[in-house]
């Protein structure tokens, strides 16, 4: 039921949960531990087991993608990690602390952007800083830094309605990162943009990831996207939602979709999903 590791990377066996055993030198310990998480939706007429016995870890600084067929509970799992929903059983730990609700330690990026339309780009990025009480030049500097990071300095005073989908999502990323979260959680963030923009955003996200050294947990249904971006791919299965296998993508970046090795990973993940 729990994640079974892929053959060539036994060390990433997700069933070892919060164990410290790591062979990869770049990993600095567990950031997120998903510990035997179950989620059941019960109504008068039916009982849906959205998640069952889900276990895996995300290491500090790691880029992990969650993929799976629709209905495999990946969005439910995302929302549970974000603290927007409570698990029915098990728990999520962030830096060893159980997650009990949403918080600034987890920056969120949504497919539908979730920008505040009444705020300019700058004001959107400022939102979390205002809540943290960051003021004056410290706030301005931080905003400028974030806008530079996502390449939107020239659009600081534009309203969201004036931006393209790709630009909106970059604002979303800048806003989430402004408060310096421990981890960036993204739910199909590039699902609403065209393929060309998506490729560009992938490169940007990887650059931002390596510049900020953030941990990223990225939900997608796009297998190529998952293989292109992540250190490890958590492949989920449906009915009930569970981890089928965790695949370590052992490819150098930047990754090229046309490489045979890339294709092999994609095929393997697809087979696991059952596509």
């Amino acid at each position: 039921m729990a994640g079974v590791s892929d053959g060539d990377a036994a060390a990433s066996d997700s069933s070892t949960a919060d164990d410290a055993e790591r062979t990869n030198a770049t990993m600095r310990g567990s950031k997120v531990v998903v510990d035997d998480v179950g989620k059941v939706y019960e109504s008068d007429r039916q009982r849906v087991e959205a998640l069952s016995g889900v276990r895996f870890t995300v290491n500090d600084g790691e880029f992990v993608c969650l993929v799976g067929p629709s209905g495999c509970g990946k969005t439910t799992l995302f929302r549970t990690i974000a603290g927007l929903e409570a698990p029915t059983s098990g728990e999520i730990r962030l830096d060893g602390e159980p997650v009990t609700g949403p918080g600034t330690d987890r920056g969120m990026v949504f497919q539908e952007y979730g920008l505040f339309p009444w705020r300019t780009v700058r004001e959107n990025v400022a939102f979390g800083l205002e809540e943290q009480g960051v003021r004056g030049t410290e706030r301005t500097d931080r905003i400028d830094e974030m806008l530079q990071l996502v390449g939107l300095t020239d659009f600081a005073d534009a309203y969201p309605k004036e931006l393209s989908g790709g630009m909106k999502q970059r604002v979303g990323i800048a806003r989430a990162l402004a408060v310096d979260p421990e981890i960036l959680l993204a739910d199909e963030p590039f699902g609403s943009v065209d393929a060309q923009t998506r490729d560009m955003l992938h490169q940007e996200l990887l650059r931002i990831w390596s510049e900020t050294e953030k941990t990223v947990l990225f939900v997608t249904h796009d297998v190529e996207e998952a293989v292109k971006l992540s250190d490890r791919v958590v492949v989920m299965a449906a009915d009930p939602g569970r981890v089928r296998e965790v695949v370590t993508v052992d490819l150098d970046r930047p990754r090229d979709r046309t490489e045979p090795a890339f294709g092999e990973y994609v095929d393997r993940v697809r087979r696991l999903i059952g596509e």
Binding site: A82, G83, L84, G101, P102, G103, T104, R106, G107, M108, F110, E112, G114, F116, F127, G128, E131, Q132, R175, A176, V179
Partner: peptide, 19 residues
């Protein structure tokens, strides 16, 4: 009001009703 906006705000540190 879109649920996403409230969730984003919560993730950015808004933790009371008045705010």
């Amino acid at each position: 009001v879109e649920t996403h906006l409230k969730e984003v705000a919560a993730s950015l540190g808004v933790d009371d009703d008045l705010t």
